[in-house]
């Protein structure tokens, strides 16, 4: 079996086992209602994690994601409540601003050869700071569009609801998977993560691909910000603090190698669901502190890093050559 499929398989098995275990304790967990809420509650995280998957696949990191989400919520709130823009117009503006922000970070990484860690750390401070300058206080959003969106959903058998933002996350995952696995851009991303020198020698436009990757990540973070604003109906400069780390966790738990080159978008989806499952379980339990989520995620993360170490460094497989006689 393909080596890179093994972590994905492991994640899937662990999710199924964990879900079965949780259901055996709280049968109420096995309902479309819970599943629908998984999607809705984690929509912003999932969308940001798709962008993060591309970044990590290419061997990079994006620490600015949470800050960009926070900035976007504030920007949208200001545009809607103070400038009177229609939310859709505000979303468009926010996405353009986020895309430009990501492109700038990508250009710095590609042309100035500054490590992504440093560039996106600077980006994180910039975005978070800018959000606080615009408005240090939370701005509530009251708009007919927001009400309409929150009341639009697809009813599943069993009373579950696929909300607009939950559906949007699934769509982003599907499009992300197509982009990663079936386009030239996707190939270039994996090539960059595998070996940037080889990639350049094989004709991959390395700077352009790098810029596009960070543009994509920031744009999706912007989209996640819009989703977060729909979800919370507010804009707050300190919202989504640390979401980049949750996204990184989802990506790694989903089987993507932190050093790049191996992984799947679908794995990230399971990684997000797994985090959602842990949170839901704690809510069902009622007596556990919500910080247990962090502890479980930390444990899972550690386990998966060990697993990848075992799969990718211990075995250096070499197929027998099948020469024609």
């Amino acid at each position: 079996m393909n080596r890179s499929l093994r972590p994905l398989l492991a994640t899937t098995i662990i999710f199924v086992l964990a879900y079965a275990l949780a259901v055996s304790q709280y049968p109420g967990l096995l309902s479309t209602r819970v599943l629908g809420n998984f999607l809705t509650d984690n929509a912003f995280l999932g969308i940001a994690a798709v962008g993060m998957t591309f970044v990590i696949l290419a061997g990079g990191i994006d620490l600015s994601v949470g800050a960009v989400i926070g900035f976007t919520t504030v920007l949208i709130a200001v545009l809607v409540m103070w400038a009177g823009l229609h939310p859709l117009a505000a979303f468009a503006v926010a996405l353009v601003v986020a895309a430009a922000f990501g492109a700038t970070m990508g250009a710095a990484i590609a042309y100035l050869q500054v490590p992504a860690f440093i560039v996106t750390l600077a980006g994180m401070f910039l975005a978070r700071g800018a959000a606080s300058v615009i408005s240090p206080d939370s701005i509530g959003i009251k708009h007919d569009f927001y009400t309409a969106v929150s009341q639009t959903y697809l009813l599943l058998p069993g009373g579950g609801r696929i909300t607009v933002i939950g559906g949007l996350m699934v769509a982003v995952f599907v499009l992300g998977a197509l982009l990663a696995h079936r386009t030239r851009f996707g190939s270039a991303v994996y090539a960059l993560g595998g070996n940037p020198t080889s990639a350049a020698l094989m004709g991959v436009p390395v700077p352009r691909t790098t810029i596009l990757i960070y543009t994509l990540s920031s744009t999706l973070a912007g989209l996640a910000g819009a989703v977060f604003s729909l979800y919370t109906k507010a804009g707050y400069s300190l919202s989504a603090v640390g979401v980049e780390l949750d996204a990184i966790a989802a990506v790694v738990i989903g089987g993507t190698l932190l050093t790049g080159g191996y992984g799947f978008i679908a794995g990230t989806f399971i990684g997000v669901l797994l985090q959602g499952l842990v949170q839901t379980y704690i809510v069902f339990d009622g007596s556990l502190s919500s910080w247990w989520t962090k502890i479980v995620i930390g444990g899972l993360l550690f386990m998966f890093i060990l697993l990848q170490r075992l799969i990718f460094s211990a075995s250096a497989p070499s197929r027998k050559a099948l020469w024609k006689a």
Binding site: Y190, A191, G193, G194, N195, M202
Partner: peptide, 12 residues
Amino acid sequence: VNLLTNRSVAEN
């Protein structure tokens, strides 16, 4: 060899 060991033979 300056190819991509993480990708398939065909893709290389």
